[in-house]
Design a protein around this nucleic acid. Structure first.
Lengths: 223, 223
DNA sequence: CTCATCATTCTTGTATACAAGAAAGTGTCG
DNA sequence: CGACACTTTCTTGTATACAAGAATGATGAG
């Protein structure tokens, strides 16, 4: 039996994923230097594939390469961060609109499951953070537009180091969960615009929440 | 006086741009093989920076790298193409919404200028194609969201090889121009939703236009 | 004549050597 | 004591050598 292993990854791509994970997980902080030799030693490869991985990350916006001066983890200004959240909100709103129209039985089941997973852990910030990610990804998938889903996941990943801080704010988890509930209901009812309208402010970081984000950003020590 | 030359590009980045231009310009066709040695000879460099450029292009979705089997210009299935146009339409609609709210005097001038440039060349398909690009880019810029503008430009670039074929369809230029006119008027009047509503179908490729696209796609010989 | 198997050739993947620019450390002079 | 120039060290950028997998072509059997 042949497994059409389309998921075959080159070494550089695997390395990219590893480093990307470290960035998304907050193990590598914005502004931090990415030394080619250290990375090469760490992964037991030469600098060549490491450099290829760094070039990929640069295109993904996760690192910044200053010619002749090395690569650093990309650090975003508050303005840019705001812009990215604004786009993220719109992409997710779009996912809602499409999902409401195209929702299949399998998608509906996956959505409810993801939602109940959130409910189960809403006392635990960190666990909720992960479950929340699952709920949002279920919506991307339900949009029926694979390209859109990929774009959404990619941007979500890029914002992850910053988003993590968001849920620590008092009552945020509780509010988040009840917003999920309303979104889910709207999707099931086929009310795309309704769902989109709830999703937008759910994702976007405005007003007080933005100030909170900036404050915690300073705590991170990002340049 | 100091010119903060942030535009300093590494060799790999320059090479990426060159190859990307060839793809966008249709000089390199979808499915075409990108031989590392040939490219290295052509640009008078070794394979190393070429490979770095190819990794970047892979992340940008412009080429596909099959491990151990080399890189080819990415060729999109009709489904994926449809999905990408759907997202493009939404991004541009979002630009409209934001631009209508935030439009500054400089943006307004730039928009009108770009529009008149379109008008001046509407007898010439190829010239209109370029002017059209300018009009859309002016809207991206007017959104006031630099990240959004970059995303829009990047996706536009990716769709360029396919979009080129669109305007050849009978009357498409005339229709396009009159849609521009209505979008411009709505933007100037601050009617963001109105502008977005015209932009969406202006960009999205649906119904007959999609069939036309698929037909010309087959002519391209893309796998 | 067609298909399968093996040898050959070509291309990609990786390490390494070397070149050259940036950073850091040292000493001297004001 | 502080600033500046110079030297040394370290890091990145590029080419090249070699290894290994894929494509290609030849040869032989059915």
């Amino acid at each position: 039996m042949m497994s059409d292993d389309a998921s075959a990854l080159s070494t550089a791509q695997r390395l990219r994923q590893e480093i990307e994970n470290d960035i998304a997980a907050g193990h590598l902080m914005p502004g931090e230097r990415l030394d080619e030799v250290s990375l090469a030693n760490r992964f037991h490869v030469s600098r060549t594939p490491i450099r290829e991985a760094l070039q990929q990350l640069a295109m993904a916006g996760m690192v910044e390469i200053r010619p002749r001066r090395g690569a650093v983890v990309a650090s975003l200004t508050p303005e840019r961060l705001y812009e990215m959240f604004e786009v993220m909100a719109e992409l997710e709103a779009m996912c809602c609109r499409l999902a409401a129209r195209r929702l299949g039985p399998a998608d509906a089941v996956a959505l409810e499951k993801a939602h109940r997973a959130c409910e189960a852990v809403r006392q635990d910030h960190d666990a909720y953070y992960r479950a929340n990610e699952g709920f949002h990804k279920a919506i991307y998938a339900a949009s029926g537009n694979d390209f859109l889903a990929e774009q959404a996941r990619q941007l979500q990943r890029r914002l992850q180091p910053y988003r993590r801080l968001q849920l620590r704010v008092r009552n945020r988890v509780q509010n988040s969960f009840s917003e999920h509930e309303r979104i889910l209901a709207a999707l099931m009812a086929g009310e795309g615009e309704e769902a989109a309208g709830i999703m937008r402010p759910h994702v976007q970081v405005q007003g007080e929440r933005f100030s909170d984000l900036i404050a915690s950003l300073k705590l991170m020590g990002a340049a």
